[in-house]
Amino acid sequence: MSSFAVGSGLSIASILLAVIVLAAMLIWVERRLLGFWQERLGPNRVGWFGILQVVADMIKIFTKEDWVPPFADRLSFVLAPAIIMVVVLMSFAVIPFTPEIGVIDSNIGVLFVLAMASLGAYSVMLGGLSSNNKYALLGSLRAAAQMVSYEVFMGISLLGVVVLAGSFNLRGIVESQADGWYIIPQCIGFLIFLIAGVAESHRLPFDIPEAEQEICAGYHTEYSGMKFGMFFVGEYLGLVLISSLITVLFFGGWLGPSFLPPIVWFALKAGFFIAFFILMRAALPRPRYDQLMSYGWLFLLPLSLLNLLLTGVVVLSTL
C-alpha cells in the first residue's frame, strides 16, 4: 500500500490530488505570468507572492449562491459543468507519469484520450444550450463547430506517432522514445497537435466560444458560483492534460538524464508547455471564427494527412 505502482490506490489518489491542486494553482500562476509578460505585477497581496490568492478565490466561489436561472433547462444546466471535470479527469487515467505512477495501462490509451476529448464538447454545448441565452447559444454553436473540427486534426496528427511507435499504449509510446524523442521525426505532427490542443481546450488565442469582447462570456454567461468554478478549473485541467499529452507523445515523457528522478523530468517538460500556453495567451490575438475554421480545414487537415502519409512511407520503406 505504501509503495507506488501503476493502478495502486496511492498512485491514483496522489495523481488525483496533484492534478486538481495543480489546476487550482494554475489560476494564480497564469495571472502572475500574464502580469510579468504584460509589464504588470499580477496578484501578489494574499500570502507569499500572492500564492494564497487561490484560497481566496476558492472561498469566494464556494460561498456564492448556487443559482440556476428560472428560464434555464435545469437538468442540462447542472450536468454541463460536471461533464468537463469528469471527462478531463478520466483522461488523466491513461497518462503515464513515471514508470511507477499511473492509473491504468490501456492498450487503447490514445483512443481513450480522443474519446474523452470528443465527449468534452458536450459540456460546452449543453452549458450554452440550456442557458436559454442568446450569447450562450452563439458561444456553444461556435464551440461545437470548433471542437468537432479540431478533433479531426488532433486525431490525425497523433497517428504519425502511433505509426512510429506501433502502439496505442501511451506507456509503450514513451518507452519507444528511449533512443530519440518523436519531436524530431514528427515536428509537423507536433505543431498540428499543439494548435489543435489549444483549440480543443478552447484557450486563447482560440477561445472563440467564450470571446468576452464579442459575446459576453459565451457559453458560461449564465453560470456563477461553483458551477462556473468547475468550468474554470476544467479549463485549467484541460491545459494540464494537453501539456502532459505533448510531453508523453513528443518529448519522451519521464525519459531524461538520470541525475533527476523521472517525475521531475515529467513535471519540468509539462510545466514548460503550460508556461508556453500561458505565453500564447499573453501574446497572440484571437482569430475570427471563419478564419479559424478555414485555417483548420484548408491548411491543417491537408498538412496532417500529408504528415501521416509521409510517416507511413518512411516506416514502410524501412521495414
Binding site: 470528443s118 465527449l119 458536450y122 447559444l137 478533433e151 486525431g155
Partner: peptide
C-alpha cells in the same frame, strides 16, 4: 465513443440548437 457519442451526436445537438 469517438464517432457516435463524440461526433455524430454533437452534430445532432448542433442541429437542435
Amino acid at each position: 465513443a469517438i464517432v457516435y457519442a463524440g461526433a455524430i451526436m454533437v452534430l445532432f445537438l448542433f442541429v437542435i440548437m
